[in-house]
Simulated assay, not measured.
Amino acid sequence: MNTSKQPQRQQPPETESNISDLMPYIKAAKGKFPSKEELFAEVNRDRDNRKKVIKTVQYTAVLVFCALGVWTVNPAISTDTYSTRYAENAQYTLHDGSKVHLNSNTTLVTKLRLRSREIMLDKGEAAFTVKHELRPFMVAVNNSTVLDIGTVFNISKWQQSFVTTVLEGEVELQTGEQKNRLTAGQSIHVTDQAAGAPYLAEMEMVTAWYSGKILFNKTPLKDAIASIQRYRKAPIKLDPRVEELLITGIYDISKVEQLLDSMDTMFPVIVTRANDGEINIQKMHS
């Protein structure tokens, strides 16, 4: 019977020696490489940072989208209505710093928008001194638009027509597809069909109302009566046979009633007044 023991396997002596030799390097490496806990913490931090970046991008995208939407819609920041009564004029400073001077019996609505400044002249006459800024300044009258280009300008409106006069700078008038550029000293007459050609303005006549005057210079009586009508509520009826008679003179707006009463001393007409204030000017029979 073989009772001999199997020889036991022994580690080569050089193995222990090799490990002991590597220990200084292993200890040194521990300080240079992160532990498992540190690796998991770093992964979590990276994940949280990515989430924050994604949220920031999402929020920024939403803000940009909303801003673009607001810019496209061009919302109104403020809306105001200004008006004057008969034989009254008034001056106002708008929210953007522009100034407007209203003649008698005038109504206009202003809309200060994000990207534009819009005015609608409903009736009457107004002078605009525009403050320069990036937002365009536009006045809508009937079916036309007057665009300011660094300007002081006057608009006088009747029912189906109006006259724009430039005192300083320029305006661009658009009526349908038609565009006209006006410079200082020019006027243009616009009807509901089209705009006429620009012409040299009679500046004293245009601006007389600023100081409470009404001025005529060989003005046809039909045009003079239309101007006088602005300062009284009751209508003035004019015989078509005397519409082309010419009138010249400077008169106080506050005294238009006296002017109407004196028409029979200037022209071959008869002036009659009704109880409701209506005035009838008829050609005198020869």
Rank of each mutant, 00 (worst) to 15 (best):
T165S: 02
F128S: 09
Q159S: 14
W158E: 07
N142K: 04
T164A: 12
F128K: 08
Q159K: 13
E170C: 06
V130R: 03
P136K: 07
Q159T: 14
V152P: 00
W158F: 15
E168L: 08
V171D: 04
V166E: 02
H132W: 10
V141I: 04
T145E: 12
D148L: 06
Q160D: 13
T151D: 04
E168S: 05
N143R: 10
Q159N: 15
F153N: 03
V171H: 03
L134K: 13
A140C: 10
V166T: 01
E168M: 05
T164G: 05
V130W: 00
I155P: 06
F128E: 15
V130T: 04
G169P: 08
V163W: 03
V146D: 00
G169S: 08
L134I: 11
Q160A: 08
V171A: 03
G150E: 09
V152T: 09
T129C: 14
E133R: 14
F153W: 04
N143L: 15
L167C: 04
T164N: 06
D148M: 08
T145R: 06
V141F: 05
N154P: 10
V141N: 02
V141K: 01
L167K: 03
T164W: 01
T145F: 13
D148N: 15
L167P: 02
H132Y: 11
L167V: 10
K157G: 07
M138D: 13
K157N: 12
